[in-house]
Nucleic acid binder design. Structure first.
Lengths: 240, 240
DNA sequence: GAGTGGTCTAGACCACACC
DNA sequence: GTGTGGTCTAGACCACTCA
């Protein structure tokens, strides 16, 4: 086959498969044909098929799984996250009637990084709790958040991790805290391999990074967090 | 060479080249060695080198140009865009002391799309102006914005396009309008090929899409816009 | 024409899932 | 073991840039 009849081959193949997903010929949560099968169907080399699949993967249509096959992603209308000074993950999801849960992946206590220290306005030697939280929507991992608290603010925090299901629920129950968002910084990027793994996405799928500083209602810094969110499942709404 | 000594080859190669950029051994705006040269250096197949380059490209380190070479991107600290009800592009850039300009790529008048009509609360048959604006920071294209106005709000808009340099300057000068942002919706995605072209980025580099509705200070909708912004050059800050 | 990146073919072996 | 996706090799031709 000529290299360029009119367009790039692997893009045509990707388009063709996406069309079959759109039309319902391939159904969500099922698999597209194997790479070798697609090679036969389109009379091309496996490398070309893999380029096509890579493109569909980046666009969020499919997720290849080693040893199993290439699964068609569920077409979920993206979750809308309303960002305001009062926003909490759980409440936001509940308001939209979306099933959700959180899982504490990891925690540690120790000295903050330079950046964390600056944001939280800590003195030298003041220590922090650092939590790694994975949030699910509908059993699909949606975001990983690294969140940091001054240890002095939440003494004995680790005692309450048993049966963890909501960070803000915990803060409210045991410390009577209602943190208030003071600022957030957004940007899009590609995930680190570690995050890609827990989010179960390929490393070439873009994510949104949301860096937030939360204060006491009074004003002093209470929490600094960085969330990495699957961009294909997420919209962020700000109202003025 | 074994397929996996300890990690994936093309990732190692990408890391190694990125390190040389960081350290200054390869300097920005210059080129990294050609693919064939890298093959010799790392004793690998060209395909592997290309995978490594693809990764660096997606991460925003380099931009390959056919027939010329693979250029190292200028490391620019990302522009911080402060999002508030009063935000304007020009003012934001000026406040940061960043050289900037805007270019009107295209304009048309006609019927709005269903979505545009809803957002602007237009009656059937009401027409709109649709503008395509490319914004530069420091001579680098940073964003493409499609922005829509009800024709009735800005009659004869096309008469003022000569020497276009700032949309909001134009609105203020000729119509005495100071639009107020009522809401914005963010998400990360991959660019359409058309946008990738004008932004001069590969189609696999993530962008941030910012959808905004601007009102008259009174409250009635005045402008609906969708901006596609290079994510490697852009942070968006919201303060509460 | 020589050199560069872009696309494609053909074939190999590895890692993983499932039977 | 068989089939799947993941990584890598070797080699070809095309499109583009520049001298």
């Amino acid at each position: 086959m000529k290299v360029q009849d009119e367009a790039i081959l692997h893009l045509q193949i990707a388009e063709s498969i996406i069309e079959k997903i759109r039309s319902g010929e391939y159904r969500e949560s099922e698999k597209i044909p194997s790479e070798n099968e697609l090679c036969r169907q389109f009379h091309v080399n496996r490398h070309v098929v893999r380029q096509a699949i890579a493109r569909m993967t980046n666009l969020g249509w499919v997720t290849p799984v080693q040893g199993k096959g290439c699964y068609i992603n569920r077409i979920m209308k993206p979750v809308q996250y309303v960002l305001s000074s009062q926003t909490r993950f759980s409440e936001n999801m509940s308001n939209q009637g979306v099933p959700h849960k959180s899982k504490l992946l990891h925690w540690e206590a120790g000295l903050p990084s330079e950046e964390e220290r600056t944001h939280l306005q800590l003195k030298k030697n003041e220590t922090v709790y650092r939590l790694e939280i994975l949030r699910y929507v509908d059993d699909t991992p949606m975001s990983v958040t690294t969140t940091v608290f001054p240890e002095a603010e939440v003494p004995g925090l680790e005692n309450y991790f048993e049966g963890f299901h909501s960070l803000y629920g915990l803060l409210e129950t045991y410390y009577q805290f209602r943190p208030v968002r003071s600022k957030s910084i957004f940007h899009a990027s590609l995930p680190f391999l570690k995050d890609a793994k827990v989010l179960r996405i390929p490393e070439s799928v873009p994510i949104v990074q949301i860096e937030s500083l939360m204060n006491h209602p009074g004003g002093s810094p209470l929490e600094y967090s960085v969330a990495r969110v699957r961009s294909d499942m997420h919209r962020c709404l700000i109202e003025f």
